[in-house]
Design a protein around this nucleic acid. Structure first.
Length: 481
RNA sequence: CGGGAAGUGGCGUAGUUUGGUAGCGCGCAGCGUUCGGGACGCUGAGGUCGCGGGUUCAAAUCCCGCCUUCCCGACCA
């Protein structure tokens, strides 16, 4: 019997700073003590450790399924982009210039044209879309790539803002503006929002970015914003309508069925390893990480309390049963480490369910099942343990979402004036909502003075605001990561 | 990039003011006793004191430069 993942050693839960005391410190403590990631040697870079990467792989799988269901295909474009490509779209280059890493030398010689390490791939992908697209019959062209990108960050934070990060970036070309918009929104809702709600158990506020907060080079940006447990907003995913800006600069054209040469309408969309930060901050507590069952690399751990052949036998039996039911489960047979240390280790790591097998209880045919999110423990018969555990996983997934949703709702405050919104967002530590008409114009500058931003615009009924300045449009205001 | 704090075995730290052979706790390795919430005993391994220069008979300690990390700010999809 062996375990590929062990409870972290050399850690003490008591050394996790409580959230109330210092939330940023709590975050760092959790990231390091759960062995998710650590800093790389170059400022802002990140080493993603196996446990963190396992979660990312699960996110990737879930996303990839949804992206393909939305019709896009995976491809791969180069890391290095000719510097001149970036300059073709003025807002795009303005937006990204400050954070570019530029390669000036190669093979020991100075390069004739410097190459930038991609901060995003709109430009290089358009260079190829322009070659591939001839006719309306080639459209829509729906491409996704899984890649790393580099944006030189002044103030890096593991997962939340790192100089190099992993993501997927989708790039599409369409025959009309309407089709492009529909597709950008389809991705936002059926891929991103669905992943966040259904898999990550994080409620998100889905809406439109203001002009100030838009992606450089986009005509519209759409976003999913989550609320972290300190009340701050985290932009978890964005989807952009690029209009014809890039296609005009790169000559990406097609002939309509009428034989008219037209520039394509485009979208781009992405989510990144930042989602791990969201997961940590939306669900974590003072005992460490708390993973939703659908994403947990280990959904259940069977803890053998002491070295004993009866205990081992039952452990193996439960392992087989749970595996047979599709559970990602492991046995912790490290009985040379004390019980308390192991249990605390699994709690820090956020493993949803712990099944403990001990001599005393086993005498009565029982084992203990413990739930990470509520801390609840229950003694149950061995015979029903695997069924109870499977039920518990599914109810925990829902409970975690509901818990996060009530937290968000309790920290969301309708406001009637800009001053009111500023006061409520700051004092209540959360989101303030206010009619957009009261912010529009100079309001965003006023908010910036207080460290607040308009996270997104939503329609009063919670749907997406399609019209630019509809009367029923609400601004969601908060501090953000 | 501005303002503040800090870099000493894997982690946390003492020593720096007053230069003189680098210490402690945790962790790690081995053996044994334990085993239902971070247990204990014995033995042991592990450090160019962030990097580079300078002063000195002698530098973790004093001087100069640089790098990195953390907090606040600015910046940021």
């Amino acid at each position: 019997m062996s375990t590929s993942t062990k409870a972290p050693k050399g850690t003490k839960a008591s050394s996790i700073t409580p959230q109330q005391e210092d939330f940023p410190r709590w975050y760092q403590d959790v990231v390091s003590k759960t062995e998710l990631a650590e800093n790389g040697p170059v400022r802002g870079t990140m080493v993603i450790r196996p446990y963190g990467y396992a979660i990312w792989e699960r996110i990737q799988n879930e996303l990839d399924k949804r992206i393909k269901a939305a019709g896009a295909q995976n491809a791969y474009f180069p890391l290095l982009i000719p510097e001149s490509y970036l300059h073709r779209e003025s807002e795009h280059v303005e937006g990204f210039s400050p954070e570019l890493a530029v390669v000036t030398h190669g093979g020991g010689k100075k390069l004739e044209e410097p190459a930038v390490v991609r901060p995003t791939s709109e430009t290089i992908i358009n260079a190829y879309f322009a070659k591939w697209i001839q006719s309306y019959r080639d459209l829509p062209l729906l491409i996704n790539q899984w890649a790393n990108v580099v944006r030189w960050e002044l103030r890096p934070r593991l997962f939340l803002r790192t100089t190099e990060f992993l993501w997927q970036e989708g790039h599409t070309a369409h025959a009309s503006a309407e089709e492009a918009r529909d597709y950008a929104i389809k991705i936002l809702q059926t891929v991103y929002e669905d992943l966040m709600v259904d898999v990550m158990a994080v409620p998100v506020t889905t809406g439109r970015k203001t002009a100030k907060e838009r992606f450089p080079g986009a005509e519209e940006s759409w976003t999913c914003e989550g609320m972290m447990r300190d009340g701050k907003a985290l932009q978890m995913g964005t989807s952009h309508e690029l209009g014809q800006r890039f296609s005009k600069m790169f000559g990406t054209t097609f002939q309509t069925s009428d034989g008219i040469e037209t520039h394509v309408w485009q979208t781009s969309w992405g989510v990144s390893t930042r989602l791990l930060g969201a997961l940590i901050m939306a669900h974590g507590d003072d005992d460490g990480l708390c993973l939703p069952p659908k994403l947990a690399p280990i959904q259940a751990v069977i803890v053998l309390i002491s070295p004993d052949s009866d205990i081992e036998t039952v452990g193996i039996q439960l392992l087989r049963e749970l595996k047979g039911k599709g559970c990602r489960v492991e046995v912790d047979s490290d009985t040379h480490i004390s019980y308390g240390r192991r249990v605390t280790g699994w709690e820090i790591k956020g493993v949803p369910i712990r099944i403990e097998i001990g001599k005393r209880e086993l005498g009565a045919g029982n084992v203990t099942i413990a739930l990470r999110d509520t801390g609840e423990k229950q003694s149950i018969p061995v015979a029903s343990a695997s069924a109870v555990a499977m039920d518990a996983l599914s109810s925990m997934q829902h409970r975690m979402f509901e818990q996060a949703r009530s937290f968000r709702d309790e920290h969301t405050y309708p406001a009637t004036t800009l001053e009111d919104a500023i006061a409520k967002a700051i004092e209540g530590k959360g989101f303030a909502t206010i009619p957009w008409s009261l912010v529009r114009g100079k309001g965003e500058e006023e908010l910036a003075k207080e460290g607040l931003t308009v996270r997104c615009l939503v329609a009063e009924n919670g749907s997406l605001p399609i019209g630019i300045d509809d009367d029923d449009t609400l601004a969601v205001i908060a501090k953000a990561y």
